[in-house]
Design a binder for these strands. Sequence first.
DNA 1: GGAACTCGCCAC
DNA 2: AAACGTGGCGAGTTCC
Length: 466
Amino acid sequence: MEFKANKLDGYQLLHQGALALARASRHGIRIDEKYCVKTLAKIDRQIRDAEITFKQTKFYKHWQHVFGSKTNIHSHPQLSQLLYKIRKFEPLKITKTGAGATDSEALLLLNEPELDPIVHLRKLKMQKDHLAGISRETINGIMHPSFLLHTARTYRGSAQAPSFQNIPIRDEESMNICRGAIFPTFGFQLLEIDFSGIEVRTGVCYHKDPNMINYIMDPTTDMHRDQAQQIFKILDFNKKYSEHYYLRQAAKNGFVFPEFYGDYYVACAKNLACRWGKLPQSKWKSGQGVEFPNVGGHLSDWLISQGIKSYAQFEQHLKEVEEDFWYRRFRVYQRWKDQWWAEYQQKGYFDLYTGFRCSGLMGKNDAVNYPVQGSAFHCLLWCFIQIDRIAREERWKSRLIGQIHDSMIIDTHPKELKHVAETVHYVTTKALLKHWKWIIVPMDTGMELCDVDKPWSTKKEYKLVA
DNA sequence: GGAACTCGCCAC
DNA sequence: AAACGTGGCGAGTTCC
C-alpha cells in the first residue's frame, strides 16, 4: 500500500474525534418541549382512535376469542399465530427464522382491509417512540445525544440517548412531526453539511477503477442513468421526464448500491420488479411464472415489446446486466474485491488508509465493505475535528452539534453564516485532500439551511455564493 | 426481575 | 460458494 498510516494516526483521530464529539454533546440541541408534550398528546389520541377502530373489526373479535385476557394487539407472535396457524393464510413473506412475517408489508399483502388499522398504528407508534425518546433525553430544553466511536466494527460512529442518527426523513409526515421538535439556539439557525457520494469516492481510493473515477470526475456522466438505460432498455434517456427520473432512482437504489454492498441479480430483479409493479417484494418470492401483464403499466408493455416477456426473462436479463457491470464496466473494482478478499483470507486482517487494522472473522462482503465505510466516516470525522477546532480558535458563536455518518450539523449564528459555510467548504473540499494524500478524487459537499428559530424539518438547499 | 433473544423499523 | 454493509431502540417473549 502506498499510503500507510500508522496506529498513532488512528489513535490521534479517535482521541481528537472523541473530544470534538463530546463538545458537540455538551453543547446539545435545543428541543421545543411544549411541542413534544402537545404532539405526543395528539398522537396518543390518534392511537386511541385507531385502536377503537380496530377493536370494532371481526378480526379483533376473533383475536380476543383466541387469546382471551392475554390479547395484545402489539404482539407479533400472537398476530403471526392468528394469521398463519389459525386463519391459515398462506404466508407470502417469512422472517429469517422461517416464521410468517407480520411487518407492514406482509400485512398489506394479505389484502385484508381489517388489518389496515394495525399498519396505521405502527406508524403512529413509531412517531411516538421518536418524540418520546427526544423528550425523555431533554433536560432544561436541551438534548445531549452521545456520539460513540468504539461500537461499530467498521470504525463508523454511532449515537445513542437518543439515537440521533435515525430520526425519520424520507416519510414527509413523520419527518415533519419528529424533526419539528428540533431547534437551533434562540436567534440561531441550523446548517447541515452533507458529503455527496462519499462511500463511492473513498471506495475508488482503494480499488482505483478508471471507469468509476471517470464517473466521479466528469459531470456529464451519470452511472445511475447509464444503469437505468441498460436495465430498462431506454434509448432516449431524459432526466427531466419524470418516469425516467423514477427509473434512474430505481436503478440506483435497486441495483447499483445493492450490488456495491454485495447483493446479486436475483434479489435485485425481485426488488426492481416490485418497484414498478408497486407490489411488495414477497409477491415475487417464487418469481417464476409471473407474467409481466400482471403488473401492468407502460414499462411492462415496453419491456414486453423488447422481448422481456416474463419475470423469469427479466431476471435473466438482469443477470447479463450484472455480468456487464462487474466484468466490463467496473472490472478493476471487481478484481480489487477478489484480491482484497484473498489477501484477508491469507493474513487474517487488512489495514485502512486512516491508521486502523481490521481483523476477526469476516465474510467477503464484510471484508470489502468495511474499508470503504470506515474510511468514509473518517473523512467526516477529520473534518468535524478541524471545524470544531477553528470554531474555538476563532471564537465563533456557532457550534457543531451532531453528526450523521456523512453529514454534520452546525447551530449557526446568522451573522457568521457566510464565514461558517466558507470555512466548512474549505475544510471539506480542500484541507481534507491536503491532509490525506490517499484521496485521489475531489470531495464534494452540499449544504442545507433552516431559517432563524425554525426547526430541522424546514431545511432547504443553501448555495454558497463566492 | 433481569439477560438474551426475535421481530420490526428508523437512519446512512 | 454465496447471496445487502453499519448502527440504536422498543416491545414482546422466554429463560434462569
